[in-house]
Write a protein that binds this DNA or RNA. Structure first.
Lengths: 347, 347
DNA sequence: TCTGTTTCGGAAATCGTTTACCCAACGGCT
DNA sequence: AGCCGTTGGGTAAACGATTTCCGAAACAGA
């Protein structure tokens, strides 16, 4: 019966195998400078005792912890969980573990999470900063001794490399698409507007409207179903009702869709709808919803690859996309044409 | 300018503060046996140097790593990412970090992940076993020196405590609900049927049908949209077409919904639809889809709470649900009545 | 046989923290 | 003054792996 108390140590293995600790250590790490005979023997003993090297001790000797930290607003959010999944895959390919924490977009909680991760001596960090400008965050990042990559939202001044999708261009392109469809009053529903990404998308919308000499109409009030209902209803009953809606985030898109559906407004006939960010059932609902899609997994993957590149030098064997070594990696979005913007016939 | 090379150590802090390492250590851990004056002084020095204790060294002295491991099939899956979010919250409340790995339902990868986590000396583990019966997994769990909790799928013989939703009762209740609606030919679409959860749901369906003296008709062939289309089309054109569909997992529900929509079959008039497991837009699509919902976050939360209870004894201050101390915690599902089963008027 | 060169293996220092143990000073008491 | 309890603080030995150095065989060539 195995004692469930304390895991075996290297010297216990050594004693059991009748060799020194050095030999055991060498067997563990590749078996250099060990005769085949002793190698096999020690391996057998290790196997029998169920020995696993204590990472803490290894780390203490100045080695990597083989862990990286990920600080995101929420784990359950599909966008970030996809990011996390991709990052975890890259971490695994690089023999590392991923520690995930949720900041809930609270700068204070974010700092605390970072500090804890640092004290755990993670080899590197990926973070989606709650506030791109935060001085406290910048201070922390400056004195950091491990590489950091920002995702989704860059840190001001490119203090750390960032991987983001091209929110500006995506939104501009989406707006242009609506314009080309011939819509005349395109209203932009921003949802909450404190985030960097939303700001970029607003800029893109404004830019497109401006080049078309059309008035940019932004509504920042939509926070939930009720506010969406209120906003849309008053627009419809007011003068010059919109003939197209551009929603800048997922939840806003869904609220708008539900309200339009409830009000029996024809999409896209009466009002067209285009959303920023794809979501699982966008193609299942009727009419299916056109969106600007972000390369979600790619963001997580590239961020992690960049991180390991910094850790290993150029040894990024696992890097699949050739990303220019730069402080800001901007990944392209793409328009997915479905029905709600008027692109395909009916359903 | 701070050197970005090596983080400061306890003895460096001690030297800078003109005290011994013991004092510094005491200051870090609560400041017992230190005069207020030195305490403040040392704290200032720590702050100034940006000192953070090296967790690895602390762990080496036999302390907890303050990390727990989570092994799930996929991080991006909404079910498991919600679990993970809840578990992370509990971990944070217990001053611990959560390490997440993805097994992709591959027993081999699962074992490897577990081994890696163990070698990192996590304090405890939460795992959704790919295969409840696996001998290799059972062997590993048996010789483990840290507590483990299984989620979603129990390990055979209650080798470790498990937290699952009541798949059997949920499916039976759902089927009964369809029966009470008066549907006469209720077909069960299982999707892939290798998982424990699906088996339980099949049992539930069978039990309900049997008590109603109705023939259980199971179809295990639906794996994607194409197979769903084929299956449903042949059922409809065959003799005795079904008047209700009970789908046992999310993706199957969605495939079925899309196919019915494509074929212009009236839901629930011609065919009713009930799904197991809720999903975000189930209430947004038209008709909205009735489902048996699982207490997703609760599974993750309770699992983590159970884990920390085992770690701390009864000190589970953070435990909110009073869960009987038992090897198998079964959480109730609930029926969400929407339109697709014929419950509410139109949409 | 002697020397030089591999090859294999061990002893011991080291990483940064905690902690058991020891020590000094202080003050109050008889 | 002598004694003792209390309080604040230091010394050094762990913890478990890696790694540097060193030594002992083994072996070949002369």
């Amino acid at each position: 019966m195995k004692k469930r108390g304390t895991p075996p140590t290297v010297s216990e293995v050594a004693r059991a195998a009748g060799v020194g600790t050095t030999t055991v250590s060498r067997v563990i790490n590749g078996g250099d400078r060990v005769s085949p005979k002793t190698l096999a023997h020690v391996q057998r003993v290790i196997e029998a005792m169920g020995y696993r090297p204590n990472q803490a001790a290894r780390v203490l000797k100045g080695h990597r912890t083989k862990t990286i930290g990920l600080v995101i607003p929420s784990i359950a959010d599909p966008f970030f969980s996809s990011c996390a999944e991709a990052a975890q895959a890259v971490a695994q390919a690089n023999d590392s573990l991923l520690i995930v924490t949720a900041s809930h977009n609270d700068p204070h909680s974010e700092l605390e999470n970072l500090n804890i991760l640092i004290s755990h001596r993670v080899d590197g960090l990926i973070v989606a900063p709650a506030n791109s400008q935060s001085e406290a965050l910048r201070d922390l990042l400056k004195r950091l001794s491990v590489p950091v990559i920002a995702v989704d939202r860059p840190v001001a001044d490119s203090l750390v490399p960032s991987v983001v999708s091209d929110n500006f261009k995506g939104a501009r392109f989406g707006t242009q698409h609506l314009i080309e469809h011939g819509y005349k009053r395109i209203v932009c529903l921003t949802g909450e507007s404190t985030l960097f990404t939303i700001h970029e998308r607003m800029r893109g919308y404004r830019a497109a409207m401006e080049s078309a000499a059309m008035p940019a109409i932004l509504n920042t009030s939509v926070k939930d179903y009720r506010s969406a209902e209120y906003a849309i209803q008053s627009m419809l009953s007011g003068p010059n009702p919109p003939d197209a809606l551009f929603t800048l985030k997922n939840s806003t898109t869904i609220y708008a869709f539900e309200v339009l559906q409830k009000l029996n407004v024809q999409i896209p006939k009466t009002i067209a709808l285009l959303g920023f960010d794809d979501f699982e059932l966008a193609s299942t609902v009727r009419p299916s919803i056109s969106v600007i899609a972000q390369p979600v997994e790619e963001i997580g993957r590239v961020a992690a690859e960049l991180l390991f590149e910094q850790l290993f030098g150029i040894r990024g064997v696992h890097t699949q996309t050739r990303v220019k070594r730069s402080r800001l990696v901007t990944l392209e979005t793409r328009l997915i044409q479905r029905s709600s913007c008027g692109c395909t016939p009916a359903p």
